[in-house]
């Protein structure tokens, strides 16, 4: 870019007043700012002992869970919309014919690779029956890659673990279920 380019806007430095030239007011200003911060409340959370507050669990994107309906059955209808929506391709579904009269298919196996997952929430958005949801559990750890591939049972257990603390999102958001 040339200096005489018409797109360049030239800004002149503001002229310093006497107070600015004296340096002392600026000096005091700087000290005042640091002193204020020195005594102010600290934002650090000492993690294992203190837990951070999750602002709104309804929009937080943590570990997945697999919702159950009121009869305790898995809600999923094995429609593959979540696996299609997933940008990280971390969902693997095997759907078979459903034993129940209210739907055609249900997942025989449903696996999410939590290590591949980018926690974008697309699966949750895509799901037509609100079967898959993201909870506010954020400190997910495991000792092996295999352990981090969550199957249907594990995802259902996440539901059991979090259902009291976090009601199903869609209901409280005025959804269909």
């Amino acid at each position: 870019m040339r200096h005489d380019d018409p797109a360049v806007t030239w800004v002149e430095e503001p002229k310093l007043g006497l107070a600015g030239k004296m340096y002392l007011p600026l000096f005091v200003q700087g000290l005042a700012v640091t002193t204020k911060h020195l005594v102010s409340r600290k934002v650090t959370i000492s993690f294992p002992e203190e837990r951070p507050e999750i602002g709104n669990p309804l929009i937080y994107r943590g570990v997945h869970r697999f919702n159950k309906d009121d009869q305790g059955r898995v809600k999923c209808v094995a429609c593959f919309l979540c696996a299609t929506a997933c940008p990280a391709h971390c969902i693997d579904i095997v759907g078979i014919e459903s034993p129940w009269p209210d739907r055609e298919k249900y997942p025989e196996s449903f696996q999410i690779d939590e290590l591949r997952c980018i926690f974008c929430g697309m699966c949750e958005e895509a799901c037509p029956v609100d079967a898959i949801e993201l909870t506010s559990l954020f400190d997910l750890t495991g000792r092996s890659r295999e352990e981090m591939i969550f199957d249907k049972e594990k995802l259902l257990s996440v539901y059991d673990q979090t259902k009291d603390a976090e009601p199903m999102k869609s209901k409280s958001l005025g959804g269909t279920v």
């Binding site: 640091t34 911060h37 020195l38 005594v39 102010s40 600290k42 934002v43 650090t44 000492s46």
Partner: peptide, 9 residues
């Protein structure tokens, strides 16, 4: 001091 001034512990 550095921590406190930066809002850390």
């Amino acid at each position: 001091m550095a921590g406190w001034i930066q809002g850390r512990l």
